[in-house]
């Protein structure tokens, strides 16, 4: 990937992306209906922005994230990173892609291998991409731990996930995602399992990382308020369609699509 010009191409470009799942055939060969998780999605994410994808469960928001990190491949349509098609990557180019795009998962209790220490977890991306010596990796891991607010990094280095709280685990997951200095991170509901006081600190951390390192984020959430707080632009996704894309401010203030209006209306708040 050479000579990328952020003005010419968005960092991420999805064009006409459709993802269909084939449910298993019925017991007597009855044919199940194809389920369209995503239906003809167009989406551009620009370098350096935090882009919010808001939707309810089953809306296709998680599928979108999984397509963008190539955990799955689209049925139709094209996905580009920095103007280059990623649909059919394999071998070396795929490995290069994997060093540029990372993901933060929803459940911090499930996303860390219970048998690996914090150090082993965070250094894994460095190891598999053959970056640095054991000493320099150790330095990098400690430095990353401190970046995500686990200070002093040395104190957490040899811990295991079960010794950490949910909020601390999620910080470890963030550390694993940023340790390679990727260009694009998909954060799939990173705060939905955390208590409000811990969640808000994590949102703050993500926004600080963006400011400090210039990484681009896709923030997937069901919480419109969180998207508004963190994101520059927001897309609302409903039943596999993107119904509205706008700046966070505008979407809340002048929602156009009826679904967005409904979503705003039912946001819990203090009405009494």
């Amino acid at each position: 990937m050479t000579n990328y010009d952020p003005d010419k191409h968005p960092l991420i470009e999805m064009k006409g992306v459709t993802k269909a799942y084939n449910p298993r055939k019925g017991f007597f060969g009855r044919k199940g209906n194809k389920v369209l998780a995503l239906n003809d999605i167009d989406l551009n994410i620009h370098k350096g922005e935090i882009f919010g994808l808001v939707g309810q469960s089953g809306s296709g928001k998680t599928t979108t994230g999984r397509l963008l990190v190539k955990l799955e491949d689209p049925t139709h349509g094209k996905i580009r990173l920095k103007g280059e098609l990623i649909n059919d990557l394999g071998g070396k180019p795929l490995q290069h892609f994997r060093s540029k795009v990372q993901m933060i998962f929803q459940d911090p209790y499930q996303s860390l291998n219970p048998h690996l220490s914090i150090a082993e977890t965070i250094s894994e991306p460095l190891v598999v991409h053959g970056i640095g010596s054991p000493e320099s990796r150790r330095e990098k891991v400690i430095q990353t731990l401190e970046t995500v607010g686990l200070r002093p990094g040395k104190a957490f280095y040899n811990h295991y996930p079960h010794q950490l709280s949910g909020g601390q685990r999620q910080r470890v997951a963030v550390a694993r995602a940023i340790v390679l200095d990727p260009e694009f991170i998909v954060a799939d509901e990173p705060t939905s399992m955390l208590d409000a006081t811990i969640a808000i600190q994590l949102l703050r951390l993500l926004s600080r990382i963006r400011d400090e390192f210039g990484m681009t984020f896709l923030f997937i959430t069901h919480n419109l308020a969180a998207a508004k707080y963190l994101c520059d632009r927001v897309a609302v996704i409903h039943e596999g369609h993107i119904v509205e894309v706008n700046t966070a401010e505008n979407i809340i203030r002048n929602p156009e699509h009826p679904y967005t209006k409904k979503l705003i209306k039912v946001q819990p708040g203090f009405r009494f």
């Binding site: 409000a196 006081t197 969640a199 808000i200 919480n223 419109l224 308020a225 969180a226 508004k228 707080y229 809340i252 705003i264 946001q267 819990p268 708040g269 203090f270």
Partner: peptide, 8 residues
Amino acid sequence: SYLSLDNE
């Protein structure tokens, strides 16, 4: 720390 649509 509670996020709602109008209190950021």
